[in-house]
């Protein structure tokens, strides 16, 4: 479909409790992504979201991806869980480069002091922090597990307070992304990245890249919950990006983010 190298910064392994997803093992996911010419992916473990002891997901994920150099594991941390710092430390020991949080599923907000504590600890460990704003469409949630999206209130303050920690918003839709751009008055912090799998509207990825800055956009699919073709078609067919813009979105921004990570704080 394309000659451009693509890093999928938002893919998943494992099981989601409310739907049987296919392509959720390393081999199956890589085969599915290869159909759209994606051969590298950052992966989280879907099971982690609903585990009470979220940290148990991390050695599980490490075991799943062992031997798969194309898959870069992203750990999971719930900073309201006792001794969560040990989970973060275990992610370091396992060789993970970043951790994902699901504040809405774990009962906290980005305005809570605990987010700052997590960012400080991640910075010390040289890890990026990924915030998943949604997992699935709230209108179709299980009636006993209705979880609103994560509000981005407080995020810009947190970015400013921890300028050396790379923060990735995953599963971010148009409205909160545009809200952040407006709130920042054109000066979004350099440590904030936006993953594009949930960008919508005709030409929406290109419009948001203009609002947010191409250098902040990370290519992601949310596969296998989403068809990976969605992000590929949005970026490569529907939009009209230049070759340098495509290179930035599909892999250079992600590579720059990873290269910036170092113990004591990244240098976005």
């Amino acid at each position: 479909m394309t000659d451009t190298a693509i890093i999928d910064c938002n893919a998943n392994l494992g099981n989601w409790p409310f739907r049987r997803t296919g392509y959720n093992t390393p081999d199956a996911l890589l085969e599915r992504l290869a159909r759209v010419d994606i051969d590298r992916a950052w992966v989280t473990l879907l099971d982690a979201v609903m585990l009470k002891n979220v940290g148990a997901a991390n050695p599980w994920l490490a075991e799943m991806v062992a031997g798969y150099e194309q898959l870069m594991p992203v750990g999971s941390v719930n900073p309201t869980w006792p001794a969560w710092e040990r989970d973060l430390a275990e992610c370091v020991d396992l060789g993970f480069r970043g951790v994902r949080v699901n504040p809405n599923y774990h009962g906290w907000t980005l305005a809570d002091p605990i987010f700052g504590e997590l960012l400080a600890a991640a910075g010390e460990a040289g890890m990026f922090v990924e915030v998943a704003l949604h997992m699935t469409d709230e209108r179709h949630h299980h009636p006993l597990v209705m979880v609103p999206p994560v509000a981005v209130d407080g995020l810009l303050d947190a970015c400013a307070a921890h300028p050396n920690v790379a923060i990735v918003l995953a599963n971010v839709k148009n409205a909160p992304a545009s809200q952040l751009a407006r709130d920042a008055d054109g000066e979004l912090p350099g440590n904030l990245y936006f993953e594009l799998s949930h960008f919508e509207s005709v030409g929406g990825v290109q419009a948001l890249a203009g609002e947010l800055g191409v250098e902040r956009i990370l290519f992601g699919t949310h596969a296998p919950y989403y068809y990976p073709e969605s992000s590929v078609l949005k970026v490569f067919e529907e939009c009209d990006f230049s070759e340098p813009e495509l290179a930035a979105i599909t892999h250079q921004n992600a590579e720059r983010l990873l290269a910036s990570l170092q113990a004591g704080g990244s240098q976005p």
């Binding site: 919508e200 005709v202 068809y227 990976p228 073709e229 969605s230 590929v232 078609l233 949005k234």
Partner: peptide
Amino acid sequence: DAPGRSFASQLAKVRGA
């Protein structure tokens, strides 16, 4: 459901099936 939705994200449901 364009233009609120992307043509592409919805085409993916068929082209990727």
